[in-house]
């Protein structure tokens, strides 16, 4: 049984208001049956220091990724993971996390590959919940094991691979990294040298729209009108466009993917999760340096 949507006026403006909830909504519905809240962070220990009471932990590195191949878990692995977390196919799964919801958006995107029907993101994420002085708990959530069905991952709709991006050259693409990474001045994100690449620059034709443009100071998403001005206005995207977004490993671009697909309602948006750590290390793929697409 799906939970009611958050009817906040800000959300009603978005193309898919059913995909986003406020911290107030979470506080109000925390004990409702059919709801599971999951925290997904960059820091693997942050959940243990205190999380939304009852929330389960969902780690991008150790749980959503395949431990050997650079890929996500498969249908059986995802079913096992969800079952252990107490999430059924009917669960309203609400995600939040640190760093402006980068990893929560990434987890939401991965769950979307498996077509989980009811996924929502908490506007403002962990930082907003904490800033508002809402309760946190250090007790690990104990949810009974359930039975999540094996659903095969669909990599066609919202995921792009390197060769598909090569075939996509000349069509709309958004690079969400920092300006220094885009131009090629930096071979890695500031402060993240371990995720570097041998070559710097961007995919030819990609427009630079750093992910943070979509976020307000308090980590919440900007309003629909503000987002339209950035992506439709400045970047010139049209709703009918086939758009590819990328960053460095696919997590910041999940944030922008969420904005384009769910807040603005563009139907054809794919996240290239190989991103710059694949493209910038690939042999003989075209690269553009400098500030222009």
């Amino acid at each position: 049984m799906a939970l009611p949507y958050d009817s906040a006026p800000k959300f009603a403006e978005y193309a898919h208001p059913e995909m986003i909830v406020s911290t107030e909504w979470v506080a109000e519905h925390l004990d409702d049956p059919g709801l599971v809240v999951a925290e997904s962070d960059e820091d693997v220990l942050l959940y243990e220091t205190g999380h939304i009471p009852g929330a389960v932990k969902l780690d991008w590195h150790t749980e959503l990724n395949d431990p050997v191949t650079r890929d996500y878990v498969d249908g059986a692995g995802f079913a096992r993971l969800m079952s252990e977390k107490g999430i059924t196919r009917d669960t309203t799964l609400v995600l939040y996390g640190d760093k402006n919801n980068w990893w929560a958006a990434y987890a939401l995107w991965v769950c979307s590959l498996f077509g989980h029907p009811d996924l929502r993101l908490v506007d403002g994420g962990r930082a907003k919940w904490i800033a508002e002085g809402r309760p946190v708990s250090t007790d690990p959530a104990k949810r009974p094991q359930v039975d999540y069905p094996v659903v095969e991952r669909d990599d066609e709709r919202i995921r792009a691979f390197r060769d598909q991006v090569l075939a996509h050259l000349g069509q709309p693409m958004i690079d969400v990294r920092s300006p220094g990474e885009y131009s090629g001045a930096l071979l890695h994100m500031p402060d993240y040298p371990q995720e570097g690449a041998l070559r710097g620059g961007h995919i030819p034709g990609a427009r630079s729209v750093p992910w943070a443009r979509a976020a307000a100071e308090d980590a919440t998403f900007r309003t629909r009108a503000e987002l339209e001005a950035i992506y439709a206005g400045e970047a010139g995207l049209r709703p009918e466009d086939d758009v590819v977004v990328y960053c460095r490993i696919g997590e910041r671009s999940s944030h922008t993917w969420f904005v384009l697909q769910h807040l603005l309602g563009y139907p054809h948006v794919r996240n290239y999760d190989g991103s710059w750590t694949e493209w910038g290390n690939s042999v003989r793929v075209p690269i553009t340096r400098g500030d222009s697409p």
């Binding site: 693997v44 590195h61 150790t62 431990p67 995720e195």
Partner: peptide, 14 residues
């Protein structure tokens, strides 16, 4: 390594 991920562990080596 399996709990934290090798990528995160690189910070400690650095």
């Amino acid at each position: 390594a399996d709990l934290v991920s090798p990528l995160r562990l690189r910070g400690m080596a650095a």
